[in-house]
Write a protein that binds this DNA or RNA. Sequence first.
DNA 1: TGTATTATACTGACCGGTCAAAATAAATTG
DNA 2: CAATTTATTTTGACCGGTCAGTATAATACA
Lengths: 197, 197
Amino acid sequence: MAKKAEQRRKQILKAAFQAATEKGYESVTLQDIADYADVSKGVTNYYFKNKSDVFTQLFEWITTRIYEKEAASISEQETAIGKLEAYINRVFISPEENKNFYRVYLDFLSQVKNNDSYKEINQKFYENCWSIGREIIHQGLEEEIFEVGDVEQAAISIRCMIDGSLIQWLMRDDAQLHDYYRTTCFESILKILQYKK
Amino acid sequence: MAKKAEQRRKQILKAAFQAATEKGYESVTLQDIADYADVSKGVTNYYFKNKSDVFTQLFEWITTRIYEKEAASISEQETAIGKLEAYINRVFISPEENKNFYRVYLDFLSQVKNNDSYKEINQKFYENCWSIGREIIHQGLEEEIFEVGDVEQAAISIRCMIDGSLIQWLMRDDAQLHDYYRTTCFESILKILQYKK
DNA sequence: TGTATTATACTGACCGGTCAAAATAAATTG
DNA sequence: CAATTTATTTTGACCGGTCAGTATAATACA
């Protein structure tokens, strides 16, 4: 019973995500969500307080999912370079696979200023990202292949570089550039960490 | 006559900008624009084709203005480091002064995927940004203080770092962090350019 | 006076949220 | 186990309200 309700909530979140990738966050209507979920219009308001509640939960779901996938990728690697490479490869996993995720994420980012819940969710996401950065840096310092004065600052810089690259790539929207931005991002981070072979 | 019309158009663009900073791009109405411009509702439709036309011109205006101010700042400097510092200082000019600009810019970015005009405007903006990066890099190479393999790639990385830092700063929305992100951004770019004293 | 500009009222489309009724599932009972 | 009652879920029509765009009236100005 509670299980079925949980299923429905996931179904509606997925529908909202799909609608957002196709129409853009702001222009998604309750009717769109219902259509993508193949239910009638009233259902969304039965399982969620209101439309904004749907999107708050969606934002939380997306950022958590991005982080978990990234964390899983780097934990499979032993070396600092391996971890960093896995991290960047995960971020730029494939044009089709994550483009929608980050597009919707960008939609949410542009709303953060108007919504304290979003701000909090994103703050948590950042902290997760920085912890990934720290893990890679610490590993590299142990291996004595990085030269980093301020670990915290470097971890922040890593995520700046990733987000900046990702956004510039998204904005140009050219499948050919996918590899280019991935390697550019990777190599720039190596320089920020003053990698020495 | 044509001069007055031009004035009115600017007035409306500014009003649209102000409305966007306060209410967020998507929720700005024609009435809002009219209110901020201190005119009646019909005026906007008299000087612009429609609402979307207003925002397209606003986006163009904002990106052009950001670029021009950045370009002016770096051209006042002679050395590579001076130029880079002026560039970053201009980007992070002051929390209040440019926060609104970049917030609205971020609003537009999230719309790029749904609007080819926006995409084109942003592409031009990027090209301007990269040209600033190239100028700084060339200067640094002449001075022999940078070590850059691929100038184009480095110029792109610079803007990735700037946008990434800017967005992360905007999302955290803490006045105290302004200086922190400015210096972090500056120092990271120096490392990307492999600056040697 | 006539043209350009601005103000105001109006229209039609759309949207979020509500709600009563219908459908379905679960529980109870004889 | 079947009949009946009760609880849960789903439907879609509907309402109040908003908005973009239009039409028209009023005003300024040359």
